[in-house]
Design a binder for these strands. Sequence first.
DNA 1: CAATAAAGTGTTATTTATACACTAAGTAAA
DNA 2: TTTACTTAGTGTATAAATAACACTTTATTG
Lengths: 230, 230
Amino acid sequence: MKKHSYEYPRPALATDCVIFGFDGGELKLLLIEREKEPFKNKWSLPGGFVFMEETTEQCANRILLEKAGIKNVFIEQLYTFSKTDRDPRERVVSVTYYALVNRNQFELIAGRDTVKAEWFSISEIPKLAFDHRDIVKAALIRLKGKVRYQPVGFELLNEKFTLTQLQQLYESILETAIDKRNFRKKILAMGLLKALDEKEKNVAHKAARYYSFDNKAYKVFTQTGFNFEL
Amino acid sequence: MKKHSYEYPRPALATDCVIFGFDGGELKLLLIEREKEPFKNKWSLPGGFVFMEETTEQCANRILLEKAGIKNVFIEQLYTFSKTDRDPRERVVSVTYYALVNRNQFELIAGRDTVKAEWFSISEIPKLAFDHRDIVKAALIRLKGKVRYQPVGFELLNEKFTLTQLQQLYESILETAIDKRNFRKKILAMGLLKALDEKEKNVAHKAARYYSFDNKAYKVFTQTGFNFEL
DNA sequence: CAATAAAGTGTTATTTATACACTAAGTAAA
DNA sequence: TTTACTTAGTGTATAAATAACACTTTATTG
């Protein structure tokens, strides 16, 4: 049997982040243009190497902040990609994360400095550097699974949102049409939404009521063993 | 903004494997006794460092073979653990996997050589080395989620199994009692089981019929967009 | 041959999911 | 100021899935 002496060389360790946003009824993705070879001027996921004194999750949060000005958002580990040739320069293993971002909250900050950042509809994602297409694909599958049994979709919306916005969000993530009446019935029956007194303004039709996600109710909800399920 | 020059030092990269088996109506876990410090003589998950020329998945399969004589089994990436102090010697990031093993298939091989390996009931897991308890916990949660929408439980059983065995398997993974008639109705209705002509022998009661998982039917099943769900 | 032990089998009630169409309210254009 | 347009908002009936529940059959053992 082989003895595991393990000095150098070691694979490099990086993280890459899939950043989701929601706008104009569509799910979006934040991409960064690479400034250096390899894949210079190609679009890519924001990423970077893991420092010795940080966890991969701390690294992902640091990258979110440094490359897109994003902080304090929902983030979850996605998958670790380790194909030996995924970076042409050297062996790099990437622990990937996905983040859910309320776009309005960060619109000004994203793309600051010299970093060119842009939101893309998930239906119009350009060719990506490295194996980033695989990473995005995995993130979409994960998100689809996730929203059905965890109320994470709200992370993508403003604090106040209409039921139509919420429904559009689910429709675009799940890539399916949902019946309006059944959707509203089900989501309201859970008791996790607070109906606000406020309504839309300056719309050319009947103004929709705003709702907000009731974090307190959700806490009680989970503690009593009930499960969110859509 | 920080520039990402990334020479040494790098975290070491390892994989650890949670190996599930099923026997005597109980879910079991294969553990290895450590021969070296740190945690000498403590139980731990089989693990090892990732070589430059292998993916983390290949590494996990290699470890399964080297440490437990197990090969060609279901294996899936679980999570990457990266707390900076999870190994007292140095910074080690571990990409973990879980495997589902038919115990009968490997009973003789596991624990060969000098490696002391033993199966433990999940209700009687001893104190483990490193953060391995967290890893096991994550694996149990994953497995619970997985068996409900993917027919992976069969990986733990013999090719021929009785419906009672299958039910016990689900009961022990999901940690819940299941109604016999409803279970059989549902699982048979999916059309994924082949009833064999063979029955149990040498049992002190009515002999149960053997079934096997119908891989062909499952292929068609998935291709036609239906989903396994229990 | 009686006792034991697990296999095997249907029906009913309840809950959940699905399908479906009109009225209300606000703005913009004629 | 009236009409057209656009989206908000609402209930019911049917179908499907789930959950609850008990006795007969078949083999072995003492």
